[in-house]
């Protein structure tokens, strides 16, 4: 796993629940340092609120009796709603494919064997296999020109967050395209897959005859990270590969791992995977050693492309 840092901007605790020291006056009857019961609010504000800046965790929220202040309950509800929507928002595969085509990639859209979101969530096995139609589409492509089998098959899968793909797929591929050019790797069409889990890439990669498959997938949304993208790399994809045979870069999003850095790390892993002919637990991500002040080193584009 790539160690992606996630600092999720946690708004200052208790925002809007109580006016702090409103009007600059302390109630005259309070002479101790007790921070509670300012004015007539029943909200107990926590005196350690400045610790909240040390962690994305929801600390120092204050309380009303044993409960959460209203503003906190609503803030939580909003985060949960966004995470739920990330799972259930219909995947706009045509729009995503058009955006990817705009970067200069060929694209093809397929579906998994799961025919709806409800079935997809209950039957992970179906999300890992292509629909019969999707399989036929990809096999037709491959038979068209077997000699043109790609080094790298790229799959864009909605996974558990279509929101993540809507937001991240095109800008990430824009950053990664430069790394593809830099290394002279041949890719097939970008396969945009609906109701798809990571392992669907195994069948796609095999159908295209690719040496490696990279799956961009919407990650299981966290309460503070509904739009996080995961990148899974598998050498010699074929149905039946296990997670131990993959490498993963996770938490690709604005507040996490940037698109540029993720593209650099993925290219580093791909280079190693193609040279060593493996992915998985035996391939450790050491790309951090090459970072310059925490950033990806600049592109070294071939002359023709620069």
């Amino acid at each position: 796993m790539s160690g992606a840092t996630g600092t999720n901007g946690t708004p200052a605790a208790g925002d809007g629940t109580t006016p702090e020291n409103a009007g600059g006056r302390e109630p005259p009857e309070r002479r101790d340092d007790s921070p509670v019961h300012r004015d007539d609010s029943p909200v107990h504000r926590d005196s350690w609120r400045r610790l909240a800046g040390l962690t994305p965790a929801r600390i120092a929220l204050g309380r009303v009796g044993a409960g959460l202040p209203t503003a906190e309950v609503l803030r939580f509800s909003l985060a949960h709603a966004q995470a739920r929507d990330a799972v259930h928002t219909p995947f706009e595969s045509a729009t995503v494919a058009a955006g990817i085509a705009g970067l200069g990639f060929e694209t093809v859209t397929v579906s998994s064997a799961a025919t709806g979101r409800d079935i997809y969530l209950r039957r992970p096995d179906l999300g890992r296999r292509l629909s019969a139609e999707g399989r036929a589409t990809l096999e037709a492509l491959h038979q068209g020109d077997p000699a043109a089998a790609p080094d790298i098959a790229l799959v864009v899968a909605d996974g558990l967050s279509s929101t993540a793909i809507h937001v991240q797929a095109v800008p990430f591929l824009a950053a990664f395209r430069a790394r593809l050019v830099e290394n002279g790797w041949r890719t097939g069409p970008v396969v945009v897959a609906s109701q798809a889990r990571v392992a669907l890439g195994d069948e796609v990669g095999a159908a295209l005859g690719a040496r490696c498959v990279v799956v961009l997938v919407g990650e299981r949304p966290g309460l503070s990270s509904p739009d996080s993208l995961g990148l899974y790399l598998t050498f010699e994809p074929k149905v039946g590969r296990t997670d131990a045979e993959r490498n993963c870069i996770s938490n690709v999003r604005g507040e996490g791992l940037s698109h540029d850095l993720a593209a650099f790390k993925l290219a580093w892993l791909l280079k190693e995977a193609l040279a060593r002919r493996l992915t998985g637990v035996q391939l450790k991500d050491e790309s951090d050693l090459l970072l310059v002040a925490g950033r990806a080193p600049p592109l070294r584009l071939p002359e023709a492309a620069s």
Binding site: R58, G67, L223
Partner: peptide, 20 residues
């Protein structure tokens, strides 16, 4: 804290819940 595990990405019971 606040039911939101920012490492494991799931929701559990909170400091407030036990008070309740």
């Amino acid at each position: 804290p606040g039911s939101d595990d920012v490492m494991l990405n799931y929701q559990s019971t909170s400091f407030h819940d036990q008070l309740y």
